Each structure stands twice: as structure tokens, then as C-alpha cells.
Simulated assay, not measured.
Amino acid sequence: MRENVTVQQALNKGKIKLIYIPLLLMLLSFGVGFYLNSVELYSGWAIGISGIVGFLLSWLAWSYFVVEWKVWAFENVRNVHELKRKAIEQRLIWNDDSWFNKTEIVCYEQKQKLKHLEKKFLEKDVYHDDISVPKETAIYFSKTTMVIEFIIGVFMIGSGLFFYWTDSSGFYWMILPLIGIYSFYSCFKKYLDKSPQIIINNEGIKLKNSSLTAWNQVYNDRVFNESHGKHSTNYLSYNSEKISIDNLDIKFDKLENLLQVYRVRFEKSNPS
């Protein structure tokens, strides 16, 4: 096992095989259905049949590629716990207890390899220090977010007043200025708040208006994305805390790296 593939590289390859290829098969199937319908061959039910066929083809592709990807990824990535967690979060694979795992197409050789690779999950993930990371990082509200909220406020108020004046019968247009005022309020509130929302350093994590939690008291710390219908939110989570980071001046990957680096430094300074 070379273990020279990063978690992100493995996830990128997984997305191609487990998301993009199945999606392409589904779109191609729909395309064939629309074509047959347009030339009046099997018209009426061609699109419905193509949808069913596309779903079956995409699921068959996932079932075939998923085991192949697991074997390759878990063989070549060192931090298999992080890889598996992120693969589940990004919907490349399912939880161990999921029924969908029973649809995987796996041969005897792959079964033996996966069984052998289970030993890697008995070891902790390994992270290293990063000298580019300062002793402490303070995270504030994002100025970019404030500008966007300000622009939205101007647009909503201007649009609402314009439509109200040009359409005197529609008081409902005044909903738009109300949304704009709220956007202004949110922007102004963030602008006045000059204090850091999160402080992370070699000793632990501190949220605004709370005391610092030492690394030896921090558990299940992670950065993850949670979908809400068509929208998604990035969160920092640890212990019982769950903080949205979308309005903060920190990127997903950078925050994740900070958690790893500062914990490594703490453990080096406080060996158990």
C-alpha cells in the first residue's frame, strides 16, 4: 500500500465514478427518450421508459464502480476515517448499516481486499503540523457577505418602491422593501460586531461569548456541509456546538486544516 493519495484526490476520483458517470448515463437515457418522442417513435411513453432505464443504468454503474473505488481509495489513502466520513457526507457511499450497500456488485477478490483493509480502520488518522498556520487564528464576519447583503437590500427596496409606484393596486410590492430593510439590518449588525466569532489556537477553540474549550475536551470536531432542499450550509461542529460558517471569513478547507494543525500542536505540547 503506497498511501500517497490525498483524501481530496480520492474524493475527486470518486465523484467522477460514483456521481458524474451515473448522472451522464441518466441524461443520455433521457436524451434518447426525448429523441424517440420527437420523431414520433414510441411517442407518449418513451420518455417515461427512458427515465426508468436511466435510473437503472445509473444505479448499476454506481453498484459496479463503488467497490472498485473503495478498494483503490482505502489502499492508497492514509487517513481512511476522514475519507470514509467525507465520502458519506458527499453521498459517494452509504453508511455501513444502509440497505443500499446490498446492491453493490462485488467479487470474491474484492471482498477479501476490503476485509483485509478493515485493519487500517483500527489505526487513528495521522495529521502533521503546518508552519504556515499562525499560533492563533481569529475568524470574523465576512466583509464580502456584508457587501452582498447591502446590495440585496438596495435592490429589494428600490424594486419594491418602483413596482409600488408603477402599480398602485399592488400593496404586496411593499414586501420587497421589508426584505431589503431586514437585509440592511443584518448587514449593519455584522458591521458593528468587530469581535471575532471564533478563535482557534494551540490551546483549543473559543466561540464568541464563551470560554475556551481545550483540545483535550473537544470531541467530534469537524467541518461539514448539510443540505436543506436546494440549499446547503457549511458548519463547524464539536461537542454540542454547531456553528454556520457561511457568513464568516474562513473557507471550508482552511478551517478543516486549522482544526487538524492546532490539535496536533496541542498533543505535541501535552503528551498523554
Rank of each mutant, 00 (worst) to 15 (best):
W45G: 08
W45A: 12
I47W: 02
I47P: 07
I49R: 05
G51Q: 01
I52T: 09
I52Q: 03
I52K: 02
I52W: 00
G54M: 02
L56D: 04
L56C: 08
L56I: 11
L57S: 07
L57C: 12
L60S: 14
A61F: 00
A61Q: 06
W62A: 00
Y64I: 12
Y64F: 14
V67H: 05
E68W: 05
E68F: 07
E68N: 11
W69K: 10
W69Q: 13
W69R: 11
K70L: 14
K70A: 08
V71Q: 03
W72V: 07
W72N: 12
W72M: 05
W72H: 13
E75T: 13
N76W: 00
V77Q: 14
V77G: 12
V77C: 12
R78L: 10
N79V: 01
H81C: 00
L83V: 10
K84L: 08
K84V: 00
K86W: 01
K86V: 08
K86N: 13
I88L: 04
E89F: 01
R91W: 06
L92E: 01
I93A: 12
I93R: 06
W94Q: 04
D96M: 03
D97Y: 07
S98D: 15
S98K: 05
W99F: 12
W99H: 01
F100A: 11
F100C: 07
F100E: 13
F100Y: 13
N101V: 06
N101W: 09
K102Y: 07
E104V: 00
I105K: 15
E109D: 12
E109H: 13
E109Y: 08
Q110L: 00
K111S: 09
Q112G: 02
K113D: 07
K113E: 15
L114F: 01
K115Y: 04
H116W: 06
L117M: 03
K119F: 03
K119I: 02
L122G: 15
K124I: 01
D125E: 05
D125I: 11
V126N: 06
H128R: 00
D129W: 00
D129Y: 00
D129Q: 05
P134S: 02
P134Q: 06
K135H: 13
T137D: 03
I139N: 10
I139K: 06
Y140C: 10
F141R: 06
S142M: 04
S142T: 10
S142Y: 02
K143I: 09
T144Q: 08
T144D: 09
M146Q: 15
E149Q: 13
F150V: 00
F150A: 03
F150C: 09
I152W: 06
G153P: 01
G153D: 05
G153H: 10
V154C: 15
V154M: 14
V154K: 07
F155P: 01
F155A: 08
F155T: 13
F155N: 06
I157A: 02
I157L: 09
I157H: 07
G158N: 05
G158H: 00
G158D: 02
L161Q: 05
F163R: 14
Y164K: 14
Y164R: 15
Y164G: 05
Y164F: 15
W165E: 12
W165L: 14
D167E: 14
S168F: 06
